[in-house]
Amino acid sequence: MTDFVNVENLTKKYGDLIAVDNLSFTVKEGEIFGFLGPNGAGKSTTLNVISTLIGYDSGNITVCGYDMAKDERKIKALIGLVPQDVAVYENMSAYENVAFFASLYGLSGTALKAAANEALEFVGLSEHRKLRTSKMSGGMKRRLNIACGIAHKPKLIVMDEPTVGVDAQSREHIMSSIRTLRSGGATIIYTSHYMPEVQEICDRIAIIDKGRLAAIGTKEELLEIITDVKTIYITCEFPPDQKESTELSVDRVLDDLKAVPDVRYVSFDPDESRFKIDVTLGSDAVTPLLRIFMDAGARIHEVQNEEPNLETTFLALTGRELR
């Protein structure tokens, strides 16, 4: 597969804030490329630079062989944008919205009609083509937002969190339509801070944090980078007859857990009364962990082992939880 998008040393600043910091990656033709990172990581900023919405301070970007600095308009013609915020006209119908945006890409007449109808069909809004956008539900608007970005059959589709705030059914629909777009030959860049989605549909994933690239590769490759981490969940209870309060006990247990050599990361979920402990894979840390709990007088209900996943990968790379 050839490189379709090539980003080299991209830096974008907002005043003193470095939103994207010397970021480099490539997207291969025909793949779904996932951008994963917490809020404020710089995902949208990167996508906005690629889709020519904002300028950048330094770096080189090529799309389909065109240099952004020289052939911006040629690049624009290749891209279909699905912005993070729903971008449609409230006082126009579904069809009018799609047709308007498609017309900006030079479509007209019967070709425009066909393209707009096809896009609406694609996102499952055919029946509502005449419906005023202001009367649509959030999920329908999200789907219309996608239709507006793809009607002109772009070679590169840039989707910024297309599933934010949609119901499960719309999410499924969106997921499967992204796959269909890929099989239709499009290259897709996709951002999300929702891990399962990215794991489900992306061929390759870039993890970014604070504007920097933390890791890049296929899901399997990323998991390999940190195969040395696994997660142990321990659900327990501190009997009420103790001298100190539950909070104090939890704090002390957390401190003791952190002191164990193979423990990478610990957290406590008070709702489920559950500790989450990332430990180095292969080390037999479970015994010293359980000892800490017993010393603290905790009554252990359940111990769960979780094999490595992207969530732990992200955590291992950034020291932060994704959501």
């Binding site: 889709s51 020519t52 919405l53 308009r73 040629k74 624009k76 013609a77 891209i79 944008l81 912005p83 915020d85 729903v86 971008a87 449609v88 006209y89 409230e90 945006f101 900006l104 890409y105 030079g106 507006c148 970005g149």
Partner: peptide, 11 residues
């Protein structure tokens, strides 16, 4: 409404 973003992204 962010529609300007779409317009500006177009060629």
């Amino acid at each position: 409404n962010h529609t300007l973003a779409r317009i500006i992204a177009s060629p």
